[in-house]
Amino acid sequence: MGAGDAGLRAGAPDFLIEVNQLTKTFNGVPAVDQISFRVGPGELFGFLGPNGAGKTTTINMLTGLARPDSGTIRIAGLECVTNPKAAQHLIGVIPDESNLYPELSGFDNLCFCASLYGMKKGQRRARARELLDTFGLKEAANRKFAGYSKGMKRKLTIAAGIIHHPRILFLDEPTSGIDVASARRIRQLIAELNDAGTTIFLTTHYLEEAERLCKRIAFIVKGRIVRTDTIADLLQPILEKKAMLISVSNASGDLCDRLSSAFPRFEFQAVSSGHIRVESADAIHIGPLVRFIESQGAEVTEARRLQPSLEDVFVRVTGIEPDVMKKEKEKAGGDL
């Protein structure tokens, strides 16, 4: 039995995280505005939104680092607004920035973090070695944390967050700003943790990451949850439609309108310069479309079928263009 099991009572609650009408304002501006959601045991729940949407503020309130203005939080059935310490033995938190001690080695950092949860010397040393091995940091165990690369720091921060076998793990932007290989390994580790039964609350602004990892997702925009659903249910409406992206050159400005008139069963949308998105409930045959476009004096350079993605759903639900999210990705320096 891990350290995190101690606080779970015999009559285990149906939901490990229950949030109701949670609100937080800073200087009168709502950062989180009356949000409600529930996360079940063993679930990997994604909390998606652009930077500044209220994701970190939500995590801070759930973990006891911030005080809500109103609303309720229950973690594993324990009331956490009036007693933020009540469930801290059950949770692990991995913040958006690595916050371990630069002057300590990787091994000493993990041992120190384990001691904060009351683990005995032998236990914490064994667990630290196990995690250093799991995260591929064995060789760097005795090096100071300050000398670690960004990816190594992120991995050690995750290791520190799970050192005490938490039942619930809060991950704030776990792959933000790190290299592709490290991000891939971290996503793999997150999936493994979830498979092993850890309930995970993941915030990210990487839509592809959420789509790959999460079972259920909430979209948060400007402090409000605009939609909560399973990935399957979110994707269902767009799965029913076929979509294609046609790249054209020398197109006139009203090509979409002319296409709409010629093919009334299809929906056409100019998504960016030289690209037209075609959607239809029926099969899209490319031949007639290409012939029509070329008859209008334009040239088709490429045509490809689009796989429906969470990004499409996100745009539909939130009205935020994918470009905004992409810019944020670039700003964060991350890559998938």
Binding site: T63, G64, L65, K85, Q88, H89, I91, V93, P95, E97, N99, L100, Y101, P102, C113, L116, Y117, A160
Partner: peptide, 14 residues
């Protein structure tokens, strides 16, 4: 300032 204190605040300690 460097946020390592948050780690202590998150520990189940009064």
């Amino acid at each position: 300032k460097n946020r390592s204190f948050e780690r202590l605040l998150l520990a189940p300690l009064p």
